[in-house]
Nucleic acid binder design. Structure first.
Length: 264
DNA sequence: ACATTGACCTGAGAGC
DNA sequence: TGCTCTCAGGTCAATG
């Protein structure tokens, strides 16, 4: 689930629920998701304080801790999400970190497969730099020119580059497929063989797909999206071709061979 | 520079 | 019902 659009939704969810409330208890249920921070250090930084604001970069969510120059960093792996709930409700399954607020509510960071990470960072921009994350795919200043720049000098498949977090931050397997589907580009198309026009198409598809996906939390996915038809043999919602499954960059890939052309 | 594979974890769903 | 197998939207390291 958690690619850029999902993490954006988590951000808005946290903004609407858990900001500005005093944290009374910090319960670490699974130490192995902590990244370079001990449970006691985490507790020391959070307890008695509250969250001021949030920031998202790619698939990372940063939550600013009031009165302490530190941000909580949440990464959701493949199965992570957030749940804000009342005292009376039961703690959700697979809660790996639970914050208890003074108002009687709780914020659960859930993660079935524990492939995510929770950490503390002093400076968000520094962290992004240090980790070598590329520009956020939806950042306003990530324009067509920057997109071309990001792809420059690359020779691999377009899907591989789109999913590479050091090239562009935020796109994973599902939405890489979706934007190539939208743009009508074969997932194995080689970057250095793509025309300027096609790069432009992919860029516009990237923005449109990510924005629609965020929107889709409220409405449904547009009818002509691939997401609901990630199934071998399904009918292509655009051209009545047959959805095909392959593997690209080690990830299962669905596409329509009829209208996604330009392989190699 | 890139693709591929396996590892990290755990659970859901398919097939028997 | 229960067992086994396969697969999963992320990322890293090792290898070719």
């Amino acid at each position: 689930m958690p690619e850029l659009p999902d993490v954006q939704v988590f951000k808005e969810y946290l903004d609407a629920t858990a900001l500005h409330q005093r944290i009374d208890h910090v319960h670490v249920a699974a130490r192995d998701i902590l990244d370079e921070v001990s449970a006691s250090t985490l507790r020391r930084h959070l307890k008695g304080r509250s969250f001021d604001s949030t920031r998202r970069h790619g698939k990372h969510l940063f939550v600013e801790v009031e009165g302490d120059d530190v941000w909580l960093r949440l990464h959701f792996g493949m199965t992570g999400n957030l749940k804000y709930y009342e005292d009376d409700d039961e703690e959700p399954d697979h809660t790996r970190l639970r914050l208890d607020f003074a108002n009687g509510y709780h914020l659960a960071y859930r993660n079935t497969r524990k492939l995510g990470q929770i950490g503390l960072v002093g400076d968000v921009d520094e962290y992004i730099e240090k980790e070598g994350l590329g520009p956020d795919a939806l950042a306003r200043d990530f324009d067509l020119r920057s997109f071309r720049q990001a792809l420059e000098g690359r020779h691999g498949t377009i899907k591989g580059a789109l999913m590479n977090q050091s090239v562009i931050a935020g796109i994973g397997n599902i939405y890489a497929d979706e934007m190539l589907f939208y743009a009508g580009v074969h997932p194995e198309a080689k970057i250095d063989r793509l025309s300027d026009d096609t790069i432009g198409e992919i860029f516009r598809a990237m923005k449109a797909v990510l924005e629609s996906a965020i929107e889709a939390r409220v409405r449904d996915f547009p009818r002509n999206f691939l997401v609901p038809r990630r199934e071998e043999g399904a009918e292509c919602p655009r051209c009545h071709g047959e959805i095909t499954k392959t593997s690209v960059s080690g990830r299962s890939t669905y596409f329509c061979p009829d209208h996604q052309t330009g392989k190699r």
